[in-house]
Design a protein around this nucleic acid. Structure first.
Lengths: 242, 242
DNA sequence: TTAAAAATGTGACCTGTATCACTGCATAAA
DNA sequence: TTTATGCAGTGATACAGGTCACATTTTTAA
């Protein structure tokens, strides 16, 4: 289901969606002047992707830049045997495809909505052209590139851990860092991924993830509330498992 | 053993080492004008690190930028149990520590010379100051950041492979891509790492690496010549193992 | 509200690879 | 040359976690 609407916040031709993704609200582009914004907005398309819908697939030509306006998506690799390896989970403000300025490339992994997600896409050639002339944007992209390197290295840390306990502990800490919220004394994780996906983000099977989470909650490190909520009870002991 | 000499190529105060690392020869800095080069050269120290010598360690303050002039080094993480995970192998022209422009940080992993290696270091604050004003340098850094993301993602691909065969095949292809040379019809790998390090770059043990390499050579995919040379006999079949 | 589908939990089993312990080889030092 | 030291090869063994099969619970759709 594709839904393209004219933005109802600004009065320019920004191709926003329900106001959420008006390009004047995209942090990456906030330093541009009106001329540049107008120029870019010609190539902007904003739409909602339903949970489970592909945003792009491995091998797709990377000629569009994706900016997450709301919701969450995962970037992952599919194996022949059906397994998958999640690389990144992106939320509001994150963008994909801006690091290869002026370089042709294709997406190496799949992008898929984890929940109903609004995404703006812009023509990469147009974006590149403007970005390369704007030191502010270049620096912002570099800043994000650095974050992404760190993120990928974190994933390597997780995958190279000796045992499943350590992988799960590392995953939880990563998720806390990215999506954790404070509720009173404790830290709460409201997950948008299921056990299978947690496993594939940590490099273990669904079953092992289930067992380890139960084990952690028996140890009093966490408390499981339903399938989509984890309350962290003992951060220090969790860190000891690394 | 520290050896600092004045560059014998250029006549400026560039702090080069045996001429090899004269900062006028560093690709990253090639777009700077003479004023900027002179400015940066104040903070340049070039020295040789002997094989096995640490260049930096986990936790070291990242207040210097490292540029490899000649030789090879590895970036790796040490585990409590003595195992290590290699992240990157860098050679001539590669640099470390330039991605976090104007941001304080510390090195997350160890850097160690794989062979006798000449390295120039420059004061990061001075470099940042100049780099951030030079769009050409910023773009060069971004380009390298993109490579590094790809590199880290490659490593994830390797580590997330199902079985050891696939890990070894991926490692070989990676090494070919980075360091492979053509000799006649076949592609040759002159390694600067031992079996243990190959294992730690692929996410398997030394023994498994040994066994798999022998297995591959029995299959006729490769030919082992001593411990530091591998000749690729059948690239296509190697790729099939992914 | 009910039916169907998807996600999770759980026991039993199996297997690939880590680990250990040792031998042989090659390179460097004495 | 001989001796020492580190690296590589190899067989035996153990076990963590993958895989399978099915029960149970939760979510979604009808």
């Amino acid at each position: 289901m594709i839904s393209i609407k004219t933005c109802n916040i600004c009065n320019s031709n920004c191709q926003g969606f329900d106001g959420v993704s008006c390009i004047h609200n995209i942090p990456l582009l906030s330093s541009l002047n009106n001329n540049e914004l107008n120029d870019i907005s010609q190539g902007v398309v904003t739409r909602e992707f339903k949970k489970g819908e592909y945003i792009f697939k491995t091998g797709d030509k990377a000629d569009r830049l994706y900016i997450v306006c709301s919701g969450k998506m995962k970037i992952y690799n599919s194996f022949a045997d059906g397994r998958e390896q999640i690389f990144y989970i992106y939320g509001s403000g994150d963008f994909i495809g801006a690091f290869n300025l002026l370089k042709e490339d294709e997406y190496k992994y799949n992008g898929e909505a984890l929940e109903d997600t609004v995404i703006s896409t812009l023509t990469k050639s147009k974006f590149d052209e403007i970005a390369i002339k704007s030191p502010t944007i270049t620096l912002k992209i570099l800043e994000k590139a650095y974050e992404r390197i760190r993120h990928a290295e974190d994933l390597v840390d997780r995958l190279s851990s000796t045992n499943a306990n350590s992988k799960v502990a590392r995953l939880l800490l990563k998720l806390i860092q990215s999506f954790g919220t404070k509720e009173g004394n404790s830290i709460v994780l409201n997950l948008s991924i299921n056990r299978e996906e947690m496993g594939s983000y940590a490099g273990i099977s669904r079953e092992t993830m289930t067992r380890k989470l139960i084990y952690f909650s028996e140890l009093g490190l966490i408390k499981l509330e339903g399938n989509k909520k984890i309350i962290i009870k003992n951060m220090d002991k969790l860190k000891e498992l690394l």
